[in-house]
Design a protein around this nucleic acid. Sequence first.
DNA 1: CGGTCTTTTGATGATACTCAACATTGGTGG
DNA 2: CCACCAATGTTGAGTATCATCAAAAGACCG
Lengths: 262, 262
Amino acid sequence: MDQMTPCFNYHDCENCPIRERGVCARCDDRELVPLNEIKYYRSYEAGQTMVWSGDAMDFVGSVVTGIATLTQTLGDGRRQMVGLLLPSDFVGHPGRACAAYDVTATTDIVMCCVRKKPFEDMMLQTPHLLQRLLEITLDELDASREWMLLLGRKTAREKIASLISIIARRDASAHAAGSGGVTIALPLSREAMADYLGLTLETVSRQISALKHDQVIVIERKRRITIPDMDRLLEEAGDDTDGGMPVREGDPKLVPRSSARQ
Amino acid sequence: MDQMTPCFNYHDCENCPIRERGVCARCDDRELVPLNEIKYYRSYEAGQTMVWSGDAMDFVGSVVTGIATLTQTLGDGRRQMVGLLLPSDFVGHPGRACAAYDVTATTDIVMCCVRKKPFEDMMLQTPHLLQRLLEITLDELDASREWMLLLGRKTAREKIASLISIIARRDASAHAAGSGGVTIALPLSREAMADYLGLTLETVSRQISALKHDQVIVIERKRRITIPDMDRLLEEAGDDTDGGMPVREGDPKLVPRSSARQ
DNA sequence: CGGTCTTTTGATGATACTCAACATTGGTGG
DNA sequence: CCACCAATGTTGAGTATCATCAAAAGACCG
């Protein structure tokens, strides 16, 4: 269980695993000095809620190792995941006093934190920090909009296929995509997947079984799956680049209803 | 039809209707000078597609007057609106060459545009521009996450009630909320509302009829509705602040399933 | 080996989609 | 001014998908 015990003895930013991708990515060595001084590490155990929605939040931070989720909850308990935080992702909203979402550690996690006020002050003096945070936020916005398409218009089966392909795409860089297929670890429980996809956990389970039955995926050890044919999975995910010609103009009668499935 | 013919003779930014809220909001008069020189206005008619997803996009811009939508489309024609652009909202992704969404004018619209390259150059030299764009993007991200909750977990009825209350909240500043109730104009067709909410237009129509039948709203002239009791509407929208005590810890058995409705 | 937690599977039902017909609205031209 | 048309919106009947309730089977852990 190597990755379960992240020993952080980098107290300098230079050896940080997210040096290349975090908010600090654009900072030069000179700019790193003050950041180095005001940052501190904080770790949480798997399952622990790091921040409660509505609570005062006096710090911002970046995920160094581990995975966390952002969730929103309706008064009666319905839950929707609105963000998946992976290493280098940023948490917090400069300029807001309170957290807008619950932040929960899915695995054991290490955060690199800075108290909000010093961070805001530093941001005003460090365009590189500001620039990188804007980039990160714009990417996050794109991701959340892609997710909206999934939530609003995809079928249960497509949602599952999309989730698996998203995780596979991310893991792809690490686990070289051997010709025999890609194997990935699902970092989420069925319930978390349901919260992610706007489904019930039963539907998630059923659709995973169905994809397995249809040999789109192969299951080994519940939380570990192999994808024999990536293209096949992407087809199932629905967002392939338009099987035929791109219909853009012309006879409106030919444009299908926006909710049409299949 | 006064607002249908927006005569733009402000060629200086000072009198601009979005001076207070646009990307330029934080700029001082000195910073406004170069912006003034590189900006240009561009208008589109209602229904016109301003940008096609995937096309090269060599400018960024802000909505000055009118309304536009961002939509994503699946290969088979299913459509999901992923953003609603109101005056002062920003369009474009500095650092990206291609548009990620279709941008369509819902009403006649006037945009204040800047070619992308000059804008990016100027942004690097103008922290106020960068700061404001970050603020706008963070707000947009929050909005899209709230929307994800709606898409993933709300019922059709709640979705409609939410949409109406969102529009009402925005209009509230303009049309003083008389004690007799608020009257708002729906800027969207039933189909556009369906694309927004992840429903079919029939379901939208049915739920509007149902809310009317239950006297949550009063309809006059199809695209114009009155809200007699705002609190009632917010209740129907589902995101009220938890009828009872906020359940946070304690017996997990008491926490309802995340997909439970009602 | 019993306990709890997670996951799977089954039976049933409600919500929202599909297809279809009809009503209303707004604009155009006789 | 009214008839007509196209676009938009409403309503109805039947159905598919996914949620709910329930129970059993696997996993994990002391």
